[in-house]
Nucleic acid binder design. Structure first.
Lengths: 225, 225
DNA sequence: CCTTTCACTATTGTATACAATTATACAAGA
DNA sequence: TCTTGTATAATTGTATACAATAGTGAAAGG
């Protein structure tokens, strides 16, 4: 399970986890073609390690749904279709609506402080228009909410889904004014958390997700023509 | 990824996957204590195989959230608290409500036929009061709906969550009349699928899940005293 | 008597060797 | 020419050997 530190996520020690991160990034950045086979030995030679950690990473990728493993044949990259991404938005919309309500019930001072910190950093980098950092902080902002649920299932499920959506659709939103509206939406979410209004929080976060979904949809609709 | 055939789910060939199934069942049946360490060599000796497939299975368990892996120390079983189970019901309620609507949109004749088949078998074994088979068919019934969404994410997420809930709470419901009400609820769900009424389908399946959740909650509430 | 250090053991992490399975190529026959 | 069978090569699955790290306990010093 990759753990995200403030800006870069570094998996704990083992080689297998490092390889997982590398391969996942490659897949999400579409460096491999859809359906391409990932040869264990070739990867091992390329990365100058043995097959064992490669196999670990591939197993992990398989369970995350990024590759498909056919017994005695090999693993093949799957990639994401626009519909996959849209489905993930639907999942996020439903689960985050629940998660934020749970979070409000169960969170302690530390969680709240962390969300506030992250939000302030977002404001800072939004002013600077630093797209990279904003994107990382956006992931962190939502993950902090997931953590506050203190439910391993909400946290685990949402973390992965949100991470995939973020990475795959991070180039979909081109309007510069989105930075501004996004920070306003995150502020509204934070406000509703602080006041403890669970219904409002749910509505606010779902609205935020829908907004993003709409923009990503528009991107893919335009791309087709 | 374990694939369920009609009654028993058998993972494809590799030893690692077989071991995964064995260890998962042991954890879900509480044959290991919470926090107990799983020693690789001990398991390898017990099961008369090498450490390699054991490690594969453990990695898989880790990603499913059933064990926790501490680098260079080992993996420890996590188990489920009543709150974990309740959280999973919440997740199911939200996601299955969406999934059944997607399923209605995207399903083809084969999916529909399969659901009908499974339902008829459920009726058959309900008449016979064969608790074991009913439980398996219940899992299959819901999984078939997940499949019909033709969305790997809905399918993957819901399959695991539902399986865990089913296994961990399968002894929670003791009233014999639950068999009857359950089959009625499943019939209502099927009917709404057939007529293609998405809103009704959502309401019906969520009502079904809530009903089960309430019974499981009652079980744990009684257990405490 | 308690604490610290250091050596030893046990266990996990990685590499490599071997077995089993699958893909490929080429030849023989229809 | 197309199919089919077989041998060979390539690749995955499993076992084992080795390396690195963490745990344990006894001896030395305070």
């Amino acid at each position: 399970m990759p753990s995200h530190s403030l800006f870069e996520h570094v998996s704990h020690g083992s080689l297998g986890n490092k390889i997982f991160d590398i391969l996942r990034d490659r897949i999400l950045n579409e460096e491999y073609e859809h359906g391409q086979k990932l040869n264990e030995l070739a990867l091992a030679n390329e990365l100058k390690i043995s097959r064992t950690p490669i196999r670990e990473a591939l197993k992990q990728l398989e369970l995350e749904g990024l590759v498909e493993s056919i017994p005695n044949k090999g693993v093949y990259v799957k990639g994401f279709s626009p519909r996959d991404i849209d489905d993930m938005f639907e999942i996020r919309c439903a689960l985050e609506g629940l998660a934020i309500q749970l979070a409000i019930d169960r969170m302690d001072e530390e969680h709240l402080a962390k969300i506030k910190d992250v939000f302030e950093l977002m404001e800072f980098y939004t002013a600077k228009k630093d797209q990279e950092k904003i994107n990382d902080l956006n992931i962190l902002y939502h993950e902090t909410i997931y953590q506050a649920t203190q439910s391993q299932y909400f946290e685990q499920l949402l973390k992965d889904v949100h991470y995939y959506v973020s990475v795959t659709s991070r180039h979909s939103i081109t309007q510069p004014e989105r930075l501004e509206t996004a920070i306003q939406e995150h502020r509204a979410i934070l406000d509703s958390i602080v006041t403890g209004d669970k219904e409002l929080a749910k509505k606010t976060i779902q609205k935020h997700i829908r907004k993003t979904q709409t923009l990503v949809r528009a991107y893919y609709a335009n791309k087709k023509k």
